[in-house]
Design a protein around this nucleic acid. Structure first.
Lengths: 236, 236
DNA sequence: CAGTGGTCTAGACCACCGG
DNA sequence: CGGTGGTCTAGACCACTGT
């Protein structure tokens, strides 16, 4: 008297929802081996390709694990991979309804410090452009940006008016697709960031660092330090 | 004399790589409209379904944007959605090569405080189990866990020996699939966390909070506070 | 070796939406 | 309206891997 899989005939989304329902309701508990694609397809009166797409998405989402010959198995420990979007600040601030404000606080050209040379694989005394900026939601500081641009890789940055254009936006327009490493961590506000954000020095703040390469060559490194109370949130 | 798209005949991955190459190398810059699926397929001598799969993945990754009738367009600002994995601590620590150590620091049953009732939609005076735990990599503290379990939803938690089993692992075994909200933020170490982690109070630490529901009912809420220097990193 | 998922194909119909 | 992507189908061959 087990209920057959309902063929709602709404396509692969329905198939996926059906299977997910069974898993959620314990019908197919962790470790359970699912019927083969062909079997599910036959049972629902649909094509195998449709079942495949549904199962493949469930695999990507970490709900099931699939191996040739071994079949499809419900994962015992769901993969805890959360997807946090790291949007362009302008968009993120605009999405809150506040007006986006950008201020260039400082600009200087200098030789790359050692840690940066190590990070970007730059030669000794490589010239870099250092920018210090503030992104704000109306009157409220939102994030402080410390940006380093390799002038060896991007000499045209010398001629750019970063008081008018935020570095991120210039970079997106100049080198839109590139390889990126992002990391996320907590830091105590240093005096400069604290002043920019209007918080006491030493405050615990969320920060991200992003290094960008293009064709294997390091272009830029940036640290964003967010206002207190900033959170990244996601559901799944 | 433009080079035709190479039909490497290695399947949709090759198609995707081809298209991605063109985008990376500026051949198809931001805002460019790509040929229609049928056109690309014909040009490469392959099936439209294969092209579709390649383009669909590029859309999911935020490289291109697709709309019916309007076609496929290279995004001007790539979506910077980074995927950070939030693994089970035991696995994360084991992956570093250190031995995983778990300690139950405190356990008590009490009425849920107001903030927790709000968070979990609990009635007044709802009983909860509060656990305080430490996860360590060998001798080094790794993360402090403050866990709240709704005893209305999970009364069987009363009988569990959390000195032997970490709450996460018991929960995964008990309610493996559920709805989760995760958030990530920075906080100054309170005295208890600071003591557990062996750092000065007030240190800036990365923390996550996770609330878990099952069939619309809140089960548990946990805050993990990580050791100083903890980073989440991802590449794309 | 045999069963399973991975992928491709050729064709089809539909939903959407810009001109 | 007509072109585009979204999806399904039926069939096929292949790659992998447990038994």
């Amino acid at each position: 008297m087990t209920a057959p899989v309902r063929a709602r005939s709404l396509g692969y989304r329905a198939v996926k929802a059906d299977i997910l329902d069974r898993i959620h309701q314990g019908d197919w508990g962790p470790g359970t081996q699912l019927p083969a694609e062909a079997e599910i397809a036959a049972g629902m009166g649909i094509s195998r390709a449709t079942v495949n797409r549904a199962l493949q998405e469930l695999a990507v989402e970490g709900i099931v694990e699939r191996r040739r010959r071994a079949g499809t198995v419900v994962r015992r420990a769901p993969i805890r991979a959360a997807r946090f979007s790291i949007p362009i600040l302008r968009d993120e601030i605009a999405a809150t309804g506040a007006s986006y404000r950008y201020v260039l606080l400082d600009r200087s050209e200098r030789a790359a410090p050692r840690w940066l040379r190590a990070r970007l694989s730059l030669p000794d005394a490589a010239p870099v452009l250092r920018l210090s900026c503030l992104h704000a939601a109306g009157p409220t500081p939102y994030a402080a940006e410390e940006r380093w641009i390799s002038l060896g890789a991007l000499p045209e940055a010398r001629g750019v008016d970063f008081a008018a254009t935020a570095p991120t936006e210039w970079l997106i327009a100049t080198v839109p697709y590139s390889e990126v490493e992002v990391s996320l961590f907590a830091r105590a506000a240093d005096p400069a960031s604290a002043a920019a954000l209007g918080v006491p020095a030493g405050s615990a703040l969320l920060a991200t660092e992003r290094t960008t390469w293009w064709e294997g060559r390091a272009l830029t490194h940036v640290r964003l330090t967010f206002h207190p109370g900033y959170r990244l949130t996601t559901r799944y």
